[in-house]
Design a protein around this nucleic acid. Structure first.
Lengths: 195, 195, 195, 195
DNA sequence: AATGAATGAGGATTCATTCAT
DNA sequence: GATGAATGAATCCTCATTCAT
């Protein structure tokens, strides 16, 4: 029962299925057939819409990053003042939707993909720069010339907490992770911040 | 002309070849044939000594973690006082031998492997606990009840810096990474430390 | 907005596209999608009009042979006397329209198709017999009982020159090929012909 | 029961199976699995020894041309005088071993392959030049400056007779074909030959 | 009349693994 | 101890063909 205008629906279904499948298996060793099955279609159709496995992966990665970016942007829109904005960035990153084990697993695997695939590497770098620039922008008024170094540390800490989410995914890991980053942030600002 | 007592030599060669190959390719998608070739033997022999690909991977992972552990232990042996010991642990983790891009790539991939493979997960957890217990042990006299939380943050920060080493491997990334961790550590101790 | 009376137009477009595509690619490994795209329609429509790939191929082959036959017939209509008619047949076969590399490539591939496909084989045989009978008809008054053998040789020579057109397509290959056949023909008639 | 030194045996078996399979099916649309099965091994082994389908095809083509070349060379070694040598070349080309329908079918398909594949085109051109140079070499003393044109005609005639062998493979097609070429050759020499 | 949607059936290729030598 | 030989099982991808709209 083919209907018209299926393309966006199918593509979205495949992207979600890819993230789920990578998340569930914990590997990039996921077959197109598995993804297509989870998305409720034949593997041939998946190829028809995306052209190949690599492009399916890239679309999925793009989607994860897009969602993440949207959430950060949304949080920033509400925040007033640099400190509130910094907190918003941190909270958004660990929000339930981003920090589900499944998503984190996909995210980690995209990190690995970026080591092999130039397109993936580019995507990743774009988002890392965006995060960093957000952090620096709001750290500057609070910590002056130390902003850059602090941003590097906060960014690395966030990544590290993500990484550990895969191993010991506690129940409210998101809250704990947020608390950790805010604690470090607070220390940094106490130490280097303008009085 | 096969020789006697080759087993340990062959095994070591395969372990090193595995790390190199994973590091060079950036993936776990490494064939036994590639590893064996790099180690200068046939893939059949690799199977003969290890029984299978999984065991080769596990041996390689074990080796990476063993070297890391040895280096930390060595550094701890020289350090006097809790603060010096904490610094020693950090420095050892980012020493040149552990922080080569190649090794870091292998390390990241073992992280991924741990999501799939129970043995790998166990190995990883053992070393994470050991690191954490080292940190807590020396943080306790300096920060009291905050030691546990601080240890979590420091450990995550270390992991995050490792993770980023793959993407933007600067020249003396090890030194920078060490500085970052020590800065955060210093802040933590200033904030929560006993007076 | 579908229009009425499109069938013959669509069919012709597909036939031409098939010949072009086979000629351009040099293979029978041409997909229906490629042909349809070149003909400016969907592959589904191609199937609708022809029923299947095989029938598209056969129609294209039929077209090539029809054009060839028409050209020969046209030339024969103008020629007076057996010798002039023989020359006409030869010239028509190597006329620019038949001897374009593209057409020749398609022709060669139809030769191959005839090995697999009974319908194609029948088509080919019909046209070969027609050529042969044309030749014999006009050779008889000039060479008597040798006509049959000479016809075989001339026909094979023509085919051989076609075959080589694919490999080293010179600029005025048609003229050269014609000259070669006429030279052999002349020799044959000098040797066996009635005085 | 694997044995040592199988490589040349396996390669030869695959080459022969390829020719047989192409000959029997009349197409290049032959699967590696079919070829391998006919050669009595798994398709994986075929890939192991040749690296890919294309290389299997090229090896088969090379073999056909090599055998042909060897036969011509052998015949030339026995012939005394230009005329005898010309006859030898012709006879060798139509000898039973070269002119089996199976071999001819493979040969035709290699002709097609040469339109797509540069390596195949090169192989084909080498052998065509060799044939042509053999002909010219021996035609020169008999026909002077006409040698080149005559060689082209004879070569094309040979090719054309090959081509037709696929369609109407008579019983002693080889003999007939030889007779045809020798007849044309005789005419050519009568017409242009030195007295 | 025309097409997007959809799939089943292959087909080339890769690879871990086994086995006889 | 060491390896060439061999394969089954997968996996990506392509394509002719069908169907509802």
């Amino acid at each position: 029962m083919p209907k018209l205008g299926m393309e966006p629906i199918r593509r979205a279904a495949l992207v979600n299925a890819t993230i789920s499948e990578i998340g569930a298996s914990g590997t990039l060793d996921v077959t197109v057939a598995q993804i297509a099955a989870r998305a409720g279609m034949s593997s041939a159709l998946a190829h028809h819409y995306f052209g190949g496995k690599e492009q399916i992966f890239l679309a999925a990665m793009r989607h994860v990053l897009t969602v993440y970016g949207a959430e950060v942007r949304g949080a920033l829109a509400m925040a007033r003042g640099p400190r509130a904005r910094l907190e918003a960035v941190v909270r958004a990153g660990f929000s339930t939707s981003n920090f589900r084990p499944e998503t984190v697993a996909a995210w980690l695997n995209f990190y690995v993909l970026a080591r092999t695939n130039a397109h993936a590497a580019r995507l990743l770098r774009v988002y890392q720069r965006r995060l960093r620039s957000n952090l620096v922008h709001d750290l500057a008024p609070l910590s002056g010339s130390a902003a850059s170094d602090i941003a590097d540390r906060i960014a690395a800490l966030i990544d590290g907490l993500y990484l550990r989410q895969g191993i010991d995914a506690g129940n409210d890991a998101g809250r704990t992770a947020t608390a950790h980053v805010l604690a470090v942030l607070s220390n940094e600002l106490d130490a280097k911040g303008t009085p």
